[in-house]
Amino acid sequence: MNEEIEIDCPQHGRVALATVCGHLVRNHGVPLGFIENSDEPDDKQGWCYACEFVYLQEEDKTDRFIAFTDYAVVCVHCYDQIKAHHQFDGPMTSAGESEG
């Protein structure tokens, strides 16, 4: 049972919700890397390489990790735009991305 939660996006209207770390939302300059945190195509969650580093140190979504990520809620279309801007081939690309 996969029930979508929707939000009102100023750019895209009422659409499904996604989450990303606050670093990705606040940084529109140099790409920070992008780690997708879900194998479910309809459950869009992502964070930057710095967040992945903290996640690997903590070995879980601990209080320290959650505070560091400073999660932001965005719509799925904004998520795709953020991912396109920040994703690049780098040293941690395979750490959080596994295809089926």
Rank of each mutant, 00 (worst) to 15 (best):
G100H: 06
M92H: 05
F88A: 12
F34H: 06
E6L: 13
D63K: 13
K61P: 00
S38P: 11
R14C: 00
H28T: 11
E4P: 12
H86Y: 12
A72V: 03
N37T: 08
V76Q: 12
W47S: 02
H28Q: 15
E6Y: 10
V25P: 03
P10A: 13
Y55L: 12
E99S: 08
D43G: 00
L17I: 05
Q45N: 13
Y55R: 13
V54H: 07
N37Y: 00
L32Q: 11
L32M: 07
K83E: 15
W47F: 07
P91A: 13
S94C: 09
A16D: 10
Y71T: 05
C9I: 12
I7P: 11
C48M: 08
C78W: 05
I66E: 15
A84C: 01
D70K: 14
C78V: 04
H12V: 12
F53S: 08
V25T: 10
G100L: 04
R64H: 13
D63I: 15
A16P: 11
E6S: 10
F53K: 13
D60H: 07
F53Q: 06
R26I: 07
P31M: 04
T69A: 14
H85S: 05
E99Y: 07
Y55N: 01
E40T: 06
D80G: 03
A84V: 06
P31V: 05
W47E: 05
R26Q: 14
N2F: 11
I82M: 01
M1A: 12
L24E: 01
T62Y: 07
W47D: 09
F88G: 02
E97F: 03
H77C: 02
E52R: 04
K61V: 11
H28F: 05
P31F: 06
K44I: 01
P41W: 06
D60G: 12
D8F: 08
V74D: 06
L24W: 03
Q57A: 09
A84Q: 09
S94P: 02
A84D: 11
V54S: 03
V74T: 06
F53D: 13
G13R: 04
R64K: 15
A67V: 08
S94H: 13
N2Y: 14
T69I: 09
G33H: 04
E58L: 05
R26L: 07
V74Q: 02
H23K: 10
D42E: 14
I5Y: 02
Y55C: 01
T93M: 05
T93A: 14
E97R: 15
H28Y: 08
A67Y: 07
A16Q: 13
V30L: 08
T93H: 08
A18F: 07
D8E: 09
D39W: 02
A50C: 12
G13Q: 08
R26S: 15
A95F: 12
R26P: 09
E6T: 08
V20I: 15
N2M: 07
G96Q: 03
Q11A: 00
A67R: 15
T93S: 14
F65G: 05
N27H: 04
F88P: 00
K83V: 06
Q45M: 09
H85D: 00
A18Y: 07
H86A: 07
G46R: 09
Q45D: 10
M1K: 14
I5Q: 09
Q11I: 10
N37V: 03
V25E: 09
I7Q: 01
T93N: 13
